[in-house]
């Protein structure tokens, strides 16, 4: 039975504290630091892992493991060496790569279909849902490194230097991966362009 984590955060932890300060507080035993770091970073770690793996349960395992590694590294954390978010993306990417290699196949469609925007009409909503599914499918079919780069750039919103750090590569390589990835996506989506309503944009 999991513990009740609704208890108030430690009095030393300030909600606006920078990540590096929270890492130090966690290392020093502050009970609220881990909660703030989790609130800040777990959603994006989970989202990235879900998009990479296409499987919610596996993505949750990866997200938990990535956060566990963050707790483990906390005492040796060097703020000048990396941002927590970038470090987590890198760890998550590596964990996903390991999983994908173990699977020996590309990720399938994920099970994260969410309801369409409530403001949209039914037909538009269906088209939007179809677009999202088609895009997930196309992403899943991309080579792994291209998929990582496209997700980090256009879904997670990282800039190219941060992506280069997260993927342990150079900025030019990132630019190339993104460009090839987008070309690959467009090629996969092109046959369904009218069906998915892109022509209305």
């Amino acid at each position: 039975m999991p513990k009740d984590h609704a208890a108030p955060a430690g009095t030393e932890t300030q909600p606006e504290a920078p990540d590096a300060a929270l890492m130090a507080l966690y290392s020093n035993g502050d009970p609220g630091a881990a909660r703030l770091l989790t609130v800040r970073h777990l959603p994006r770690v989970l989202a990235f892992a879900t998009r990479m793996l296409g499987d919610r349960a596996e993505a949750e395992d990866v997200a938990q493991e990535a956060m566990m590694r963050l707790w483990r590294i906390a005492p040796e954390w060097k703020p000048e060496a990396a941002k927590v978010s970038t470090w987590l993306y890198r760890v998550t990417a590596n964990l996903c790569t390991d999983r994908l290699r173990r699977r020996g196949r590309a990720a399938g469609l994920d099970d994260t279909s969410e309801p369409a925007d409530g403001a949209a009409g039914v037909e538009a909503g269906l088209i939007a849902a179809d677009r999202a599914d088609a895009l997930r499918q196309a992403l899943a079919e991309l080579p792994e490194r291209q998929r990582q780069a496209v997700i980090l750039r256009h879904i997670e919103g990282l800039d190219n230097p941060a992506i280069a750090e997260a993927m342990d590569t150079g900025i030019e390589a990132v630019e190339s991966l993104i460009a090839r990835g987008k070309r690959g996506l467009m090629a996969r989506l092109a046959p369904r362009r009218s069906e998915l309503g892109y022509d209305d944009d």
Binding site: K3, T38, L42, R56, A59, Q64, E114
Partner: peptide, 18 residues
């Protein structure tokens, strides 16, 4: 449309941290 972590996952992560 990013998936959000559910309470079970949050509890597991915080239990690890604690």
């Amino acid at each position: 449309l990013a998936p959000q972590p559910g309470p079970d996952l949050v509890a597991r992560v915080l239990a690890d941290a604690d």
